[in-house]
Amino acid sequence: MSGHSTHENRHVVSFKTYLATGTALLILTAATVGVSFIKLGGWNAIAAVGIACLKAILVAFVFMHLLYDKKIFLVIFSVAIIFLTIFLALTMFDILSRGEIYPDYEEPIEKNAVIYKKAEPAPTGEPVEDSTPKNH
């Protein structure tokens, strides 16, 4: 069925390709659910995100026609991913490296947070998490 094209010379993807992609997506869904039940430690998260990326690539390249359409659309999509990665990476770098040079600065915010709680008594140096969850 492949080889069709519309009057604008737009590629028409074959039915088989679509069906195969859909099937692959369902198989990958089964795989990611299955993997989540195996204890792999840190690899669980990597596997989950990895499979999700693979699925997203399938959707973008076949269903959204990135593979067949103008390459500029692929560039736009990649730019979105790159800048999201920058956002995530630099923010996480701050979060994870707090307290590395001056240990006093580690989690300063939550430990001092008691000052924002008007109703509560003065801070005792205990972390705030002991007071939540509330409204038992």
Partner: peptide
């Protein structure tokens, strides 16, 4: 209250 290392890099 940003980490000092991050501040240096920024």
């Amino acid at each position: 209250g940003q980490s000092q290392l991050a501040s240096a890099i920024f």
